[in-house]
Amino acid sequence: MILDLHSHSIVSDDSRAKVENYCQWIRKKAIPVDGFVLTEHRLYDDVSDYSALGRESGLLILKASEVETDYGHVLVFGVTDALRRTFDFGEIGLPLEKVVHESARHGAIAVPCHPGRTKVGMCAHIETRGEPEGVQVIETLNGGSRGNENDEALALAERKGYHRIGGSDSHIVSHIGRCATRFEDEIHDMDELVAALGAGRCEAIRLEDGAWISLP
């Protein structure tokens, strides 16, 4: 089961991609993913319902968030109303340890994304703030990374023993599926996704010439 765990739709302030167009693109270009997760910036989209679109297109479409913390950007999978009451998703500079802790307490999981990225990745902040507590999983393959940003993320995961995920970080339709996450089990909903991430039953992969490449 392969899911792109990091994507943005027009619900995010900086994306021009419509979810319908992501589905059309995946099918037209035969991108080998089984679905994707919409991780909108600084909010959780509790309005849009993509279940019918998912059924029509044969893709699993799930919703999550990308929040901004003192250690950079963090994906939150398994967002609930109760979790949203514990911190303001719209704030920048949220304490990472609070986001991680509250997510775990509410059955969700917080995953620092593009950790090798300047200023908005975890690696840069570890030097000044120390190692954060509670992180289990990080994004080691991000489709928007430049230079050696993904290498730095992988080195961090190896050093700390973090589980690894991949995502395209697509903001435009043609970027969906550049990177993704392969799961050992079938994923049908967000609860199963959170469980698989927590158990580390996944690996980060990237698409190269139409085939998936695993990281070492």
Binding site: D13, R42, G72, G90, I92, T118, K119, V120
Partner: peptide, 13 residues
């Protein structure tokens, strides 16, 4: 009016 962070640091939109 909102804030966000990116590669170049904090920004106000």
């Amino acid at each position: 009016i909102f804030e966000k962070t990116g590669r170049s640091g904090g920004m106000m939109f």
